[in-house]
Amino acid sequence: MRFLSGLKISLFLACLLPLARLLWLGFNDGLGANPIEFITRSTGTWTLSFLLITLAITPLRRLSGWQWPIRVRRMLGLFAFFYACLHFTTYVWLDQFFDPTSIYQDIFKRPFITIGFASFLLLIPLAATSTQAMMRRLGGRNWQRLHRLVYLVTIGGVVHYWWLVKKDVTQPAIYAAVLAVLLGYRLWRKRSGPAFLNGASTQSTSRPAQENQR
């Protein structure tokens, strides 16, 4: 228990480092010639990173046999939402300065913004139902079904990044590759079927929601 709370506190602080870095750079003239672009990119790529880290929890737990990763998954998922909110706020406030016409046109005319915005919207119900009380109210099954949206959100996020870059897709390709591994692992396990599950009792889908696998 003490291990877990210590872990949670250090992880919480670690998750704030990308924001701390931006603030530090901001106050030290370190954001380059186009600070708004820098902040938009940074909060965007950290959103993707946190989504991928969250999706890595289940494989990590399965492969290592550790139980603690599942205990920090909610926090990691909420940090993905936190950076997505910063990303969205940067766009609406700093980049567009609340210009309704150009935001409206962006969302409906630019496929990369359409998909980014849709992914952000889909993250909201996941964040809203992340509490124990909401899990209980929804019931494990429904909660789990709802939270499978995270796959769609992450795919949408990677596509959003891919369509945005002018020509060099190296960076989005790295995120896409990690996502492919994480999704591939799940497909492979699903295809291998129950015979593969050596510790079948801990994997059962009827377990309480928090313990369920995504």
């Binding site: 010639a33 672009e37 700093l94 980049d95 300065f97 150009s102 046109q105 962006d106 005319k109």
Partner: peptide
């Protein structure tokens, strides 16, 4: 005439806040 993927209606002058 927009770029197929983004608008060309405004620009950010480097060093300025508002487009």
């Amino acid at each position: 005439v927009d770029h197929p993927r983004w608008s060309q209606a405004k620009e950010r002058r480097i060093g300025e806040f508002l487009k």
